[in-house]
Nucleic acid binder design. Structure first.
Length: 696
RNA sequence: GGGCCAGUAGCUCAGUUGGUUAGAGCAGGGGACUCAUAAUCCCUUUGUCGCGGGUUCGAGUCCUGCCUGGCCUACCA
């Protein structure tokens, strides 16, 4: 299809990491897979662009921001920084890193939306959904628990029960909002839908052509969604896709539908385009050159869980909006750890950052490469295998070639002409096409196998040539140089083949032989006549203690998180630190009369605002019920966003003598604990307390 | 419940359109070497190819039933 000597224009994407959490080694399977493919294409001399982005919208981010008392923008900015730090740690080579909460994304979403409207694909329908009155939000399924209408099991998820039944959250018996613990009410709201069925014929043709998808994936779509017009059951109708959410929602408001927002799955994949647009602006290119150009290929790398979105909605949207369709969607399986599903609770959902503290990114890149094929099978991270594989293959076989021969030619460099090596170099060069095909088809495991077979031929060559004996005889100096020239060339050839996986090793090899590795074609011609630098260690062996240290740390993180969650949820942990009492020792004994002098009252915050010029203060208006209002300046600016405080009940000192402050009169104090700054924790009464009630 | 995928040596996997005694790496056993990060090289043990039927001159490979595991099952991000 594509001749190897033809320069291709390739746009590659990986799934956009969600801004609601850290990157773990499961994510890294896909990101490393994508990065290897991108580096491979560049090495082959193709023009390859990898625009990437955080995925930032949706209810989950909104809820999290509220819970943490800060803005969504703060939450996603922090996630963005954390994600990119991890990606750089793993040597991922993306060209642009955007955000789905960007101007570019809003713009492209708007343009695509308009074409969908104009094409008559959008329709409105009323949807009944559970609404949490206290939290003031509609509840996505996962934010509701209740009793299964079928088997009456209690405490089941909003859309399915462990008995296997699926239902709508509105059918739940005794539904409870997991946000507030209150009983939500059913409310009807207008939603916007895309009538995907209008694109049925196109989607069948596109998914079943055999060009764009792995056969299992095409099969899955046919069996599940599209049906088969030639079968007994016939074609199935594609359901309408609900792409709007009513306010409040963190996302983009739909321009022609005020109060409604695009569902995160509408704007997330458009983030691929928006990130490309950002890159184009910086580099003076036209977006259409990538996204509306038949000569440009588009490749998506995704996990099998999001197949549906990328193989039906996404091509449907692109088609309707006049953009290029994906050339290929590459779907991969999940990561298991030591044969089991990753578990945050058990601490086997290793964070990328935790891994990087203890281990070399190259090791994981190689290990994943050696396991990844073109199928959807899950791959397993087994640390014993990981250690032996990296040590035996990379250090023992590949790097060893350089480490056992480079120092013999440090002073003389490589021979001027490439010596007779019995055809080793040439046959390994011939294997290059097969290795390249394996990379191209995402069969990295096959590529690694082929490369290691070559390494298994190179080491015996050195063994038989015995350079360490040649060294002893000054008359055999040129023979020694020749043997090492062969060994180093075989080594360099392997490193070129491995360079998409191990960019770091490629760079060090370039430095050793004073000829940087920049192109796949360098594997076809031996390097001669260059000087050879002093050999330095290129890759460290993996030590068991480092693996153990990472496992321990991850386990400790998991336990700490679990303990924190439990303390918060049930206050059932009595192993609290003694530090606060040390920081602030007990005050002098007081009498009940002393205490009664202080009039503590439940109050509701009815307004909260920033005070211009104040560094620490927020201005609060507190209601004690009826028309009793108090104005209070509280030093909690660093810990709370004003919007999150409104409506909240707190405990205040109501009879405190008013005090004239720089910004106005303060008529009381809100009770809070903590040392100050960001560490301030307001006191709140339990549910049922009423503003104005005295605290005894 | 329905669907997709997988099940080959202790472990990780290769086995092309069915064709001779089923392969590799790691691990295990024995030996060699000492240039190299206890690295390397040579030799070597191990299989009811998940189970049962069927098609065929011939099945790991095709069909079928079952068992086991992973995943998916659209308003979940």
């Amino acid at each position: 299809m594509n001749k190897p000597d033809q320069k291709r224009k390739i746009l590659v994407t990986a799934a956009l990491p969600y801004a609601n959490g850290p990157i773990h080694l499961g994510h890294m399977v896909e990101f490393i897979q994508t990065d290897i493919w991108v580096r491979f294409q560049k090495l082959r001399g193709h023009e390859c662009l990898f625009p990437w982005s955080d995925d930032t919208h949706g209810t989950a981010i909104m809820i999290r921001a509220r819970a943490e008392g800060r803005s969504e923008e703060e939450v996603i900015a922090e996630a963005d920084a954390d994600h990119q730090r991890d990606f750089q740690g793993f040597q991922l080579q993306y060209d642009n890193y955007g955000s789905t909460h960007s101007d570019e994304n809003r713009q492209v979403c708007g343009e695509i939306w308009k074409t969908l409207r104009d094409a008559g694909l959008v329709k409105e329908k009323d949807v009944e959904q559970l609404f949490d009155v206290e939290a003031g939000t509609f509840l996505a399924d996962r934010f509701v628990n209740g009793t299964c209408p079928e088997c009456k099991r209690t405490d089941q998820a909003g859309d399915n029960c462990e008995c296997g039944h699926t239902y709508s959250p509105t059918e739940l018996i005794d539904p409870v909002s997991v946000l507030s613990g209150t009983t939500p009410e059913i409310r009807s709201a207008k939603h916007l839908f895309i009538e995907l069925e209008q694109l049925h014929d196109f989607l069948r043709q596109w998914t079943q052509s055999g060009e764009h998808l792995q056969p299992e994936v095409a099969n899955y779509l046919k069996g599940h969604f599209l049906g088969d017009p030639d079968s007994k059951e016939g074609a199935k109708e594609l359901r309408d896709w609900d792409i709007s959410r009513p306010a409040p929602y963190f996302g983009f408001e739909i321009p022609d539908s005020p109060g409604n927002y695009w569902y995160v799955w509408f704007d997330a994949p458009i983030g691929y385009i928006a990130s490309t647009l950002q890159w184009c602006k910086k580099n003076g290119q036209s977006l259409d050159n990538w996204w509306k150009n038949d000569a440009a290929e588009i490749h998506h790398f995704i996990g099998k869980d999001i197949t549906y979105f990328h193989t039906l909605f996404w091509p449907g949207m692109l088609k309707a909006a006049g953009y290029s369709l994906p050339t290929k969607v590459h779907v991969h399986g999940f990561l298991t750890v030591n044969g089991e599903k990753m578990s945050k609770r058990k601490g086997t959902a290793f964070k990328a950052a935790t891994y990087l503290k203890h281990l070399n990114p190259a090791a994981l890149r190689y290990y994943y490469a050696s396991k990844l094929g073109s199928k959807l099978d899950d791959i397993d991270l087994n640390f014993e295998e990981f250690t032996t594989k990296v040590n035996a293959d990379l250090v023992g076989k590949v790097v060893n070639l350089a480490s056992r021969s480079a120092k013999f030619v440090k002073d003389v460099g490589l021979s001027e002409t490439y010596p007779d090596d019995g055809g080793l170099f040439e046959s390994a060069a011939a294997t290059g096409d097969e290795i390249a095909a394996a990379y191209e088809n995402c069969e990295y495991n096959k590529a690694m196998r082929l490369i290691l077979e070559l390494a298994d031929r190179a080491n015996p060559y050195v063994e038989n040539a015995e350079p360490w004996n040649l060294k002893k005889d000054p008359e055999k100096a040129s023979e020694l140089q020749d043997v090492c020239t062969v060994a180093l060339n075989l080594f360099r050839q392997l490193v070129i083949y491995l360079s998409p996986v191990l960019p770091d090793l490629a760079e060090k090899t370039g430095a050793l032989l004073n000829d940087p590795i920049v192109s796949w074609d360098q594997s076809k011609t031996p390097l001669t006549g260059t000087t050879v630098s002093k050999f330095k260690h290129m890759m460290k062996r993996i030590e068991e203690k480092d693996v153990k240290a990472m496992e321990e740390e991850s386990k400790a993180e998991a336990e700490a998180a679990a303990a924190a969650a439990q303390t918060a949820a049930t206050a059932d942990q009595f192993n609290d630190s003694g530090q606060p009492m040390i920081d602030e020792p007990m005050a002098e004994e007081c009498t009940i009369d002393d205490f009664m002098k202080v009039d503590l009252r439940v109050a509701r915050i009815v307004s909260a605002e920033h005070v211009e010029g104040a560094r620490k203060l927020l201005k609060l208006t507190l209601s004690l019920g009826g028309d009793h209002r108090k104005q209070v300046f509280a030093g909690i600016k660093a810990a709370y966003e004003p919007e999150t405080l409104v409506g909240r009940q707190v405990v205040m000192v109501a009879n405190l003598k008013p005090r004239q402050m720089k910004f106005g009169l303060s008529e009381g104090m809100v009770c809070a604990s903590g040392p100050g700054g960001e560490e301030v924790f307001l006191l709140s009464p339990d549910d049922g307390a009423k503003p104005g009630q005295r605290v005894h």
